[in-house]
Design a protein around this nucleic acid. Structure first.
Lengths: 330, 330
DNA sequence: GATAAGAATAACAACGTTGTTATTTAGATG
DNA sequence: CATCTAAATAACAACGTTGTTATTCTTATC
């Protein structure tokens, strides 16, 4: 069995309640004895029993992160950043990759102080069960009863189109996953069409390339097919990091030069964009900002039970790299 | 506050100890009252207090997984498989992406029943702190005091070279990350040279291409450089999934046809290999097998405190796809 | 040098369970 | 119908903390 405050008490020759106070640096115990007790505790390698502490009910300083869809590069990056950000606070983080409700039950058992949910495309009702919970990403549910942090995808697409417009592009295609069951993808797609209309750029269904998936080869195949049909735009908007990786691979293999012959701008603002063989200009909320916002919102919610607004749309930014150029006048 | 067994007791008109026994389906309480109590508990939505249960000391049926390096495709797949495998057992899983010792402390606080450590390239001493712990992957430490599950990388490389040898290849290059601080990478590299010697295939330092990193573009650039130098082998062994992705991209772009002009075999046996634009023949322990072994070993260790052997080397298998062919006679 | 006030410490209840021991109840037996 | 036995339930200690209340020890004051 482990060392308890009673062990310390008997060695120090004081009562265990005094030990408790001493270890919690209470002003009720004399500096002298405090020091003595702390030293003994340290010598014995005392570790407080968490379960007992929590039984008398106190916060755990632990936040749970629910991440049901683990295999997505962008989110792995975000998790890392969140973890780093969390390390700057007194909180620790544990994750669960189980389905949402099961994760929530586990976290509730452990009495985490709060939960961050990566519920990108959650259509089912979830029941936070009285744990402070914030969600990252678009929710399909209309009547969520918890705060949501999300990127302003509409604005991001608007910025992207605006940027391309200023460079002279009037022939732009969107290459992304058009999935009616995935609100995030739908919002990007709708952001694209809306922006195109706003800037008065004509487009048809031909200009929306549905990749049918989110991996790089989905993007690869979509562009490959496009090139074979000879409908070459002056610019492409890639729907995600992985997809854009496939897009530029396909373009390179077909000797379509970026950015001279075609400009590419990608959704997802992560550092890895710079490491692609053609460093991609991208649009989106930077993961660092996102991580910071998520962590601090969670902690604010935990500590004050109040959050400014129910849905926070983070403002995206555009990072210029080498993949976009002014359109050539033929 | 939450519902406790005392609430149930007062409603049922029995003592709370009877309620406890009834809810644990003890034979000491009459079937009749048992049913009554269970019904009341259900109606009230009673949930046992985990902290209290653990204070009287019982197992948590939770296993912690420590995963400090989150951004690696192969491991994400493995985590998913482990999670699925775990779901078939009475255990749940939580993960931590914090540094090892911090993760361990967190898990110890939560009194998890056991820990799985992804300590791929852990050179520092770790202190399991009396929690049953198994580790996946090569450990740099010589004197670990916990069981290790690992793939037999040597054997895998041997199988790969043997396979290529049978296909007639005598000019083989290894493209991988040669990092003295990463035991896993070193073992693959050494497996390669050892196998080459065993099959009496001559090679020089020129045939070992150090990518200097584990991402796909590291493999891409290494092969790109190789092609420019015109030292074309008949076969390449790729050191990992990501690296091999870069390898075939580079080959394709340079119009080196796989497998007619060059054969490629990759380390890492994961389903995604089939989705690369050229489905890659690969070598390694399949993630499914690995996940099953890891989960069951962990549970065995927890429940019996005994494990067959200290280091289990899983037997790799070779999955044939479209990327290797018999060498052409010029 | 007795006494009041304040500082320091001790004692103890409480948190919600489980497991052990004590008590009550019901049923069987002569 | 008294008595013994077994079944059912109640009572209570224990797990390791924290916070509240009770007690003891100092020290200053007259």
């Amino acid at each position: 069995m482990n060392i308890t405050i009673k062990d310390i008490a008997s060695i120090a020759g004081v009562s265990y309640s005094t030990v408790s106070k001493a270890l919690n640096d209470s002003s009720l115990v004399k500096e002298n004895t405090k020091r003595k007790i702390v030293k003994i505790a340290k010598d014995l390698g005392y570790e407080p029993n968490f379960a007992a502490q929590r039984l008398v009910s106190k916060n755990t300083k632990v936040i749970g992160l629910i991440w049901p869809t683990i295999e997505r590069t962008v989110l792995a990056t975000l998790v890392t950043k969140i973890s780093n950000e969390m390390a700057k606070t007194p909180y620790s983080m544990i994750l669960s990759v189980d389905p949402i409700q099961k994760s929530l039950d586990t976290f509730k058992k452990f009495q985490v102080d709060g939960v961050i949910l990566f519920g990108e495309n959650t259509l089912t009702e979830i029941n936070p069960n009285s744990i402070p919970l914030i969600s990252y990403g678009v929710s399909g549910k209309k009547n969520y009863h918890y705060p949501i942090i999300d990127a302003n995808h509409m604005k991001a697409m608007d910025d992207a189109i605006n940027y391309l417009y200023e460079l002279g592009h009037r022939n732009i295609k969107y290459v992304g996953n058009i999935s009616p069951t995935d609100p995030l993808q739908m919002e990007k797609y709708q952001g694209f069409t809306k922006a195109m209309e706003k800037y008065n750029i004509s487009y048809t269904n031909e200009d929306i390339l549905d990749t049918g998936g989110l991996d790089w080869y989905h993007g690869y195949h979509a562009v490959d097919k496009m090139l074979k049909s000879n409908h070459l735009p002056t610019a492409i908007v890639g729907g995600s990091y992985d997809i854009s990786g496939g897009i530029i691979r396909s373009l390179k293999e077909n000797n379509v030069h970026i950015p001279d012959e075609i400009s590419v701008i990608s959704y997802d603002n992560i550092p890895q964009m710079a490491h692609l063989e053609i460093p991609l200009t991208c649009i989106g909320v930077s993961v660092e900002e996102l991580a910071e916002k998520i962590v601090h919102s969670a902690i604010t919610l935990i500590e004050t039970k109040k959050l400014d607004s129910e849905v926070t749309k983070m403002i995206p930014s555009l990072v210029e790299r080498a993949s976009c150029a002014t359109v050539r006048n033929n």
